[in-house]
């Protein structure tokens, strides 16, 4: 055998793939994996929200109450009790005890928290001009309870935070960013959720007062007042114009009577005077 010195034509031991192309493929795969996990868990949350044990919701409620320091307010509680008294007999909310609390926060907003608690901010109380309006706000939040939107919204935030904590660790900046962005108690509801809660509230309002006056008042006023500082209520409960329109259509379709608004009761006026220092 004769030895012929020559070099091999090409290197078979090293892949020809460009490193950046490989990076793109791997990152793409990772992204796909994250999306699948995110979508899958989101779906799982949507399914489990309907079967969340009361014990877990109670625990979430305790946690939520710590985030929103507020106190009992008897005048508000009386309005809420009047609404829950006229709930239809087959309502899923029947038999649950709802509490309304007042927060001194000046923002114009109200939130439905886990554990059957509604928090009204004093800024909202300041905006309200009639009993009907206040009842509409309370009934709207009851609507979110009836459709379990308050849990659904929280569940998604929890899933994202959990995924971030799993991937990057609990103390990492990414997890902090994710929980800051997503684990919020006042995240926006979707247009569909808002419309459903509105329709629910309108029915309850009519059941309570026998007429639909004041259903759109607060939103008409807030939408008209769009200033340099948009109201927090509009931030967490978006699409005001669309909702006013839908509510008006509903009132017309169902032939609900619209009569006089009932002015705020004396107990509420006193509460308001104490809270925001004006009559």
């Amino acid at each position: 055998m004769k030895f012929t010195p020559r070099l091999p034509d090409e290197n078979v031991n090293v892949s020809k793939t460009h490193p950046l192309a490989e990076l793109a493929w791997l990152l793409g795969g990772l992204l796909l994996l994250c999306l699948l996990v995110f979508g899958g868990l989101g779906l799982a949350v949507d399914l489990t929200v309907d079967h969340l044990p009361p014990r877990v919701e109670g625990w979430l409620g305790d946690y939520a109450r710590r985030q929103f320091p507020a106190r009992e307010a008897a005048p508000l509680q009386r309005r809420l009790d009047a609404l829950t008294a006229v709930l239809p007999p087959d309502s899923p909310l029947r038999g649950r005890i709802f509490r309304v609390r007042l927060s001194s926060d000046p923002q114009v907003n109200a939130v439905a928290l886990p554990g059957n608690t509604i928090v009204i901010f004093s800024g909202l109380l300041d905006e309200v001009t009639s009993e009907n309006e206040l009842s509409m706000v309370l009934a709207h939040e009851l609507g979110h309870f009836a459709h379990r939107d308050h849990l659904r919204q929280l569940g998604r935030g929890l899933v994202i935070t959990a995924v971030a904590a799993l991937l990057f660790g609990e103390r990492s900046g990414v997890t902090e960013l994710a929980s800051d962005l997503f684990l919020t108690w006042q995240a926006s509801y979707s247009r569909r959720q808002e419309a459903a809660a509105d329709a629910y509230a309108l029915e309850l309002l009519v059941a309570c007062y026998g007429q639909a006056a004041g259903a759109t008042d607060l939103f008409v006023r807030l939408a008209a007042k769009k200033g340099p500082r948009p109201s927090r209520l509009l931030a967490s409960h978006p699409y005001p114009e669309k909702r006013i329109e839908v509510l008006r259509q509903l009132i017309e379709q169902r032939g609900y009577p619209v009569a006089e608004r009932i002015p705020l009761g004396d107990d509420l006026r006193r509460l308001l005077a104490k809270e925001v220092g004006k009559e």
Binding site: N13, V14, S15, P19, L23, L26, L30, L33
Partner: peptide, 25 residues
């Protein structure tokens, strides 16, 4: 650092760790 990232990502999906082939070669 770059090759290490590629290898870490490879650890998730499996397959040839192409980033390290040239090193050994």
């Amino acid at each position: 650092y770059f090759k290490r990232l590629l290898a870490i990502l490879r650890n998730i999906f499996g397959g040839r760790v192409k980033a390290y082939e040239s090193l050994v070669d």
